[in-house]
Amino acid sequence: MAELMDDVIDIIAEKARIDRAKLELTARLDELNIASLDVVEIVFALEERFDIQMPYNANSTQREFETIGDVVRAVEGLVGEPA
């Protein structure tokens, strides 16, 4: 799964234009100051890359993922699911 994790972090780094070294698994998304439209594009890119459907609503007060690690685990879970 290390490859998947690298892919997820690559996508976040590219779309949010953040230095990859800052994207540790414990890094919090709200503290990385990723603009809302960038988050939407990251979710889209992850869905395209892994052929998954990620539940994400920009209006939801309940955060689906809070850290980089949460995003990686969410993708892992969805990739593992039968289509």
């Binding site: 609503n57 920009a58 209006n59």
Partner: peptide, 20 residues
């Protein structure tokens, strides 16, 4: 849908429970 701003059920402006 792709903008992730659409409510799945209904529109609840200004309510804490609003979803888009």
């Amino acid at each position: 849908e792709a903008m992730r701003v659409m409510a799945p059920d209904t529109c609840r402006p200004f309510s804490k429970t609003r979803t888009g």
